[in-house]
């Protein structure tokens, strides 16, 4: 008997005005996988993330999580099931110190349920989480207001905010964009560790080199539709994909 996939997306579509932002995309995702989603600008990657996490409701199609239909659930309910996401545009709670930013997810019903009805010392948990994503523990960094942190830290704060939810499925929307090579290099082991811990990852990325190193499987979107799917090696060799990325003349 075939195992129920962790996430199953069936023929999902969404239009904005006349534009088909996401057009009949289907895919499956197994426990423990790292799935990469790539595509040129405007190919509907972020919209797809919004559809999966309930921030936008699809015009048609369904999303199943562990066999359960979650298409109609509200964004916070989906997050409560353990599907956490980062946002492409980092917008932390600017007035709060970095570690206090994590208090909000740590205060969610999901965390309360998972830790047996008690929250415990949220501040300490928050500091631990920040250390995990690469904030120096014994420095002032975790205590600085989020508005004073550089972009690289904010991206990792975004990641920590998701980890605070103890997700089963983590959707990273362009986590690497705007990070320096060194920052990317230091974040990669964090993600690898997450995979070892059994967290399934969907990574929407523009940095293909790093993505192809991590991902088990890659989906290419173009004009909202699925163009290709396969292992990183297959995608690299796919002529259609090259065309979509580089334009037909360059081939």
């Amino acid at each position: 008997m075939k195992e129920v996939p962790l996430l199953q997306v069936v023929n999902i579509s969404k239009q904005f005005g006349g534009v088909r932002a996401v057009d009949g995309v289907s895919f499956e995702l197994c426990q423990g996988e790292i799935l990469g989603i790539v595509g040129p600008n405007g190919s509907g990657k972020t919209t797809l993330v919004n559809l999966l996490t309930g921030f936008i409701k699809p015009a048609s199609g369904k999303v199943f999580y562990k066999g359960r239909d979650i298409t109609a659930l509200a964004a916070h309910e989906i997050a409560g099931l353990g599907i956490a996401r980062t946002f492409q545009m980092v917008r932390p709670f600017y007035h709060l110190p970095a570690f206090k930013n994590l208090i909000v997810p740590l205060y969610s019903p999901r965390v309360k349920r998972l830790s047996g009805g008690k929250f415990g010392d949220r501040d300490a948990v928050a500091i631990d989480l920040l250390e995990e994503v690469g904030f120096e523990r014994d420095s002032f960094v975790p205590y600085k207001p989020a508005s004073a942190l550089p972009h690289g830290y904010l991206k990792r704060l975004e990641l920590a905010r998701c980890l605070a939810l103890r997700p089963a499925l983590l959707i990273l929307d362009e986590l690497f964009s705007g990070l320096s090579m060194a920052e990317v290099a230091s974040t990669l082991p964090v993600l690898e560790k997450l995979q070892i811990e059994g967290i399934t990852l969907i990574m929407v990325e523009h940095r293909l080199r790093e993505l192809f190193r991590l991902a088990n499987r890659v989906i290419v979107l173009n004009f909202g539709a699925k163009l290709a799917e396969g292992t990183p090696q297959e995608i690299i060799n796919n002529e259609e994909v090259k065309e979509a990325y580089l334009g037909s003349e360059a081939v």
Partner: peptide, 24 residues
């Protein structure tokens, strides 16, 4: 308090609060 932090979070960025699994 932490309750107040959630409220201020909603004021700053309600999307992120939704994403944190909290019913705003």
């Amino acid at each position: 308090s932490d309750f107040g932090l959630v409220l201020r979070g909603i004021h700053d960025n309600d999307q992120a609060v939704k994403g944190a699994g909290i019913n705003i």
